Amino acid sequence: MSNPLLRELDHYVVLEPGGGERILTAAETLAWLEARLAKLEPVPADLVGLSSPGLQAQRLLETACELELAPGLTIQWFAVRIEPPG
């Protein structure tokens, strides 16, 4: 079960091999995950029953923090809280 506080966070740090780290909004992170899932074959077993890449990405965002794209090639994402300046 995911922590309900994570759903309140609006930003994520995403890590890709060779790509460094980036801070994305929640919507950008979902799109980033969808794009990675679209290229992945086969989709992880726990995502097969979900009807769209958007639902699959949402499930990953709520329940995981990494996805193996190929042996030894893993992407990761972590929720972060960005405090407004002040």
Rank of each mutant, 00 (worst) to 15 (best):
M1A: 12
S2I: 09
S2M: 12
N3A: 13
P4Q: 14
P4Y: 13
P4C: 14
L5K: 13
L6G: 04
R7P: 00
E8A: 15
E8P: 02
L9T: 08
L9I: 06
H11G: 02
Y12V: 00
V14G: 01
L15T: 07
L15S: 06
E16W: 06
E16R: 07
P17S: 03
G18W: 06
G19K: 03
G20N: 02
G20V: 01
E21T: 15
E21F: 09
R22P: 03
R22M: 11
R22I: 10
R22Y: 07
T25A: 07
A27E: 13
A27M: 08
E28Y: 00
E28K: 00
T29E: 04
L30C: 02
A31M: 03
A31C: 05
A31R: 13
W32H: 01
W32V: 03
W32I: 03
L33R: 09
L33V: 06
L33S: 09
E34K: 15
E34G: 08
A35Y: 03
R36W: 04
A38P: 07
L40M: 05
L40T: 07
E41G: 05
E41R: 11
P42H: 04
V43I: 11
P44H: 01
A45N: 11
D46G: 05
V48R: 10
V48N: 02
V48F: 01
V48D: 04
G49Q: 07
S51Y: 09
S51H: 13
S51Q: 15
S51I: 12
S52K: 01
P53S: 09
G54P: 07
L55G: 13
L55N: 12
Q56L: 05
A57V: 05
Q58G: 06
Q58N: 06
R59E: 09
L60E: 01
L60R: 02
L61R: 11
E62Q: 14
T63K: 12
T63I: 05
E66H: 09
L67P: 01
E68K: 05
L69H: 02
L69P: 03
P71F: 04
P71T: 01
P71C: 04
P71Y: 00
P71K: 02
L73M: 08
L73H: 09
L73E: 07
Q76G: 09
W77N: 03
W77K: 03
F78M: 08
F78K: 10
F78T: 10
A79R: 11
V80K: 07
V80T: 09
V80L: 08
V80R: 10
R81C: 10
E83S: 10
E83D: 12
P84S: 11
P84G: 11
G86P: 13
G86K: 15
